[in-house]
Amino acid sequence: MAEHILSSKLYWAIWAILICLTVVTALVARVDLGWFNPVAALLIATGKATIVVLFFMHVKYTSEKLTTMVIVSALFWLLILLALSLADYSTRPIS
């Protein structure tokens, strides 16, 4: 079994980044950036989620393409749900 064992230092570094990003996202929310506020919040959240998936969940080190495919298709299906529902709500004559 070709298992990839990462160093514990790397895990601690990831943890530090995640904690920093949590603080950053809470601070950024208090600054008025207009429409960029929710975008920033979601970008940071996506960044954190990606780091967790890649390192904590070892997706970066797996040779298995199937795992990536599962994640991508689930996200794609979520996008279908959101986009096509929104297609209805964003074109309704009255809100």
């Binding site: 996202t25 008025d32 929710p38 979601l42 967790v52």
Partner: peptide
């Protein structure tokens, strides 16, 4: 995974228009 869900719930629920 449960952690990741929370990573999204936190900004979506707590961080709307905080400024």
């Amino acid at each position: 995974f449960v952690d990741i869900v929370w990573i999204y719930l936190f900004p979506l629920l707590y961080l709307i228009d905080r400024h």
